[in-house]
Design a protein around this nucleic acid. Structure first.
Lengths: 101, 101
DNA sequence: AAAACCAATCGTACATTTACGATAGAGAAT
DNA sequence: ATTCTCTATCGTAAATGTACGATTGGTTTT
């Protein structure tokens, strides 16, 4: 019985696309990204006001989007300004376009 | 301390996009869908031969893709023929296009 | 009728995700 | 220096995801 998850090798594009897709795989994160697309940028607090979830959960979702490379955070003390990460956003867009032909 | 996960209401398009994205959120499923896009259709066994994972795991991934509506299965005894679900595929494509502008 | 084949499902183990409240830490304002 | 504000992180609980081998069930072939 094998009981430790093995990691399998995939092509880089496949991994990237899956990573981006995974980041998009929660409605809250879709809302956040749509918000950022309209506003171009915003602070964490703005999202906390808009979303029906706690501050810590919003922060967690932002962290995941950041880890996936879809957004970036800039220190604007005492706040943090989040924006779409333009280059990676473009890469993601291209990967999805290619994927769907 | 609240310890049961609440489900929050989102717009239908947001939910749909997140659902499709979630289904795309694993490299194995990306590979399966790419395979289906090229071949147009295939049997479970074909995928088991190609992928470095067990039959039951492949079956599980197929189930998730089916639940997300991205593929459909047709009985071709003793096999099962899987194809892209054209209508939903188109919907997914459109949602991603809209999302990325 | 029995054997063979294919693929779904079951049972299980472990990892990851999602949510919360509480706490911490960095900077600004008093 | 102390207080206030904002947000990340910690700790925790519950749900979901990912993988496997074993089993089951339907269909075909023998």
């Amino acid at each position: 019985m094998k009981r430790s998850l093995e990691h399998i090798e995939y092509k880089e594009d496949t991994e990237s696309l899956a990573k981006f897709a995974k980041a998009l795989g929660h409605p809250t994160r879709i809302v956040i990204l749509k918000y950022l697309e309209n506003q171009s940028c915003c602070f964490t607090g703005d999202l906390v006001d808009v979303l029906p979830i706690s501050q810590s959960t919003v922060s967690q979702h932002l962290k995941e989007l950041k880890n996936a490379g879809l957004i970036q955070g800039e220190l604007k003390p005492p706040k943090i300004k989040y924006c779409i990460h333009p280059e990676n956003w473009k890469i993601a867009k291209t990967l999805f376009q290619q994927f769907f032909d």
